[in-house]
Design a binder for these strands. Structure first.
Lengths: 141, 141
DNA sequence: CTGCACCTTCCCACAATGGTAAGGTCAACA
DNA sequence: TGTTGACCTTACCATTGTGGGAAGGTGCAG
């Protein structure tokens, strides 16, 4: 099938399928005589795997590792679990940072009357040079 | 003072100070005869403000708005509060998404014995083309 | 005068994705 | 047959915010 079909069935955009191939996450797709990429059910299954792991927030590097583990039927399940737990730990860290920030902002917003008056504890606080602050990374979904 | 000093005092790297200026977040810095940028306490205070708001996860666009509100002493505090609450809401959304993912991964990791054996419910689940829920319907191969 | 630390601008890279442009291919339909 | 439109190809640009590094000027201290 063409890339459009594979895209539709896997939920991965054609753009991304080509990109994944270009960065070596996926092997080079078979080509037909006209130069079009050609996909079968097997390839679609791989794409679905990638899609699902991406949805769970794994980086392409991690997806690559998971693909390798997936295709190696003799790998110890320990390795897979380790990857999953590492990812869980990262999520927890980021959530903790965001909770901190959220808490701070809520406190500030709560102290701000939020009406026509110009005085605003939020800006007052932002003006204070902080010594130590957890640098919260902006995370994607 | 030179950019290095301003960087040290504000916690914003020299690289980023120049970048912020280049994208118009900050006004063009004064220059000395030798072409070096020249900063005073006022400018450092602005940089500290930017640093703090960045640490709280605001985008550069949002920082720009906050700077404008900050320098306008007659703005209604309502506007500031609105921005803060919008950001809080975004944080909550992202945290909720991450919690979902984390929950799914924890369930999967919990089902994986994580030893030398190759069978792994995590990979089994990842192989399932998902429409929505991580409900493991089909038995492992 | 030399060396070193600092400053300048400019370009590159990252991660992962979308957009768009210029062109080839193919099937269907009038 | 010819045209149309949907699809495919590659290639480049933009994003967000940050760091790295090159190539060259400046300034101070020894």
């Amino acid at each position: 099938m063409n890339i459009g079909q594979a895209s539709e069935r896997s939920g991965v955009s054609a753009k991304m399928i080509r990109y994944y191939e270009s960065v070596g996450l996926l092997p080079s797709a078979a080509r037909r005589a006209n130069g079009y990429r050609d996909y079968g059910d097997q390839e679609v299954a791989v794409l679905q795997f990638v899609r699902r792991t991406r949805d769970l927030g794994f980086s392409l590097d991690e997806v690559s590792s998971l693909l390798a583990l997936w295709s190696n039927t003799r790998r110890p399940s320990r390795e897979v679990k380790k990857l999953a737990e590492k990812h869980i730990a990262e999520l927890e860290v980021r959530m903790a940072e965001m909770r901190e920030v959220s808490k701070t902002l809520k406190k500030l917003a709560g102290a701000c009357h939020g009406d026509d008056r110009p005085d605003c504890p939020i800006l007052d606080d932002l003006s204070q040079p902080r010594t130590k602050r957890p640098a919260a990374k902006r995370a994607k979904a």
